[in-house]
């Protein structure tokens, strides 16, 4: 294969990977504060994409304003999800919580396209389609802008986690009872994490919807997000970025190399292979939190 094409695959793959990472961030945020698996993140991203379509394409708001409005609404929906479905399950076995988030995912996948129409909706984010050349390599401009926005949001989250509020969120993930004992409102912290997860999911849904169109398939971001969250170590924000790049590039290379041989479709296998391989070889992921054991 010629070098320019290969470079093109890698760069565009990396850009897509950063967008996936944004979706994965929601899983990591929830896991980091509450230790719970958020398997509804795909549907949250999808719902965010639909909301973005409503505010931008339907109400005609400027894409940035529309996206912000959608994110604010989704923050509230994230709080609502925690309050209504997760808080009542405090103290229940983990399997119950996993089932509830999967149930939420399936419910939204069915309900939202059912209400808003299942056809693919065009979402124009105002990013020009004109090709962008880097040497001989053709870079997808939409991907480049989207990846830039994704990276900014991820870095902002990282900064948040080093602020005073972030320290409290991390304290909650370390020891909920001890956090409670020193005055941290643990329920608020967990609700806040769900709100943030919904915001990042929405950003991912809108950016991805801007290049693929908005329909229920946005929720398939869940598989990629899960692969990234697991590979990155479930509670590391840096891990999300690195794992996102790895998954994105691996997908691009796989589809570039194998699609012509087998007739397409290899892209979607990559995430599943990565989940399996991580769990078999290094279940704690690349940047998983070290388990502190004192002697």
């Amino acid at each position: 294969m010629d070098l320019a094409l290969f470079g093109e695959l890698i760069i565009n793959g990396a850009l897509v990977g950063l967008m996936y990472a944004l979706a994965a961030l929601g899983i990591v945020l929830v896991y980091r504060t509450s230790g719970l698996a958020n398997l509804a993140q795909g549907a949250i991203a999808m719902l965010g994409g639909y909301l973005g379509w409503i505010t931008i394409a339907w109400l005609g708001l400027h894409p940035i304003l529309g996206a912000l409005v959608a994110m604010v609404v989704m923050f509230a929906i994230g709080l609502g999800i925690e309050r209504t479905t997760l808080r009542p399950l405090i103290g229940q076995p983990v399997i119950m919580i996993i089932m509830v988030t999967i149930g939420l995912e399936i419910l939204m996948r069915g309900l939202v396209p059912g209400l808003l129409g299942s056809g693919v909706k065009r979402l124009d984010l105002g990013i020009s389609d004109a090709p962008l050349f880097l040497g001989d390599m053709l870079i997808n401009r939409t991907y480049l802008v989207s990846a830039g926005i994704a990276l900014i949001i991820i870095l902002a989250t990282l900064a948040l986690f080093n602020s005073r509020i972030g320290i409290m969120l991390r304290a909650v993930s370390d020891d909920q009872t001890a956090s409670w004992s020193v005055g941290i409102r643990v329920e608020w912290a967990i609700a806040f994490a769900w709100g943030l997860a919904a915001v990042t999911g929405t950003a991912a849904g809108i950016l991805w919807g801007g290049s693929q169109g908005v329909d229920w398939t946005l929720s398939l971001l869940l598989i990629k997000a899960l692969a990234i969250a697991i590979l990155g170590g479930l509670d590391s924000i840096v891990g999300v970025v690195v794992a996102g790049l790895i998954v994105g590039v691996a997908e691009a290379i796989a589809s570039g190399l194998f699609d012509p041989l087998v007739g397409g479709g290899t892209r979607d296998i990559v995430a599943c292979v990565i989940i399996l391989a991580t769990l078999l070889v290094k279940p704690e992921g690349l940047f998983g939190r070290e388990h502190i054991e004192r002697v």
């Binding site: 409290m168 991390r170 370390d174 001890a178 020193v182 005055g183 941290i184 502190i292």
Partner: peptide
């Protein structure tokens, strides 16, 4: 917030936070 605080048995520090962050965590 009324002014009483409980130091739990077995210390229960936030293990993955630095001592300074442990202190900051208690300032909500």
């Amino acid at each position: 917030r009324l002014g009483l605080v409980h130091v739990l048995e077995g210390r229960r520090v936030f293990e993955h936070l630095t001592p300074r962050e442990n202190l900051i965590a208690a300032t909500s």
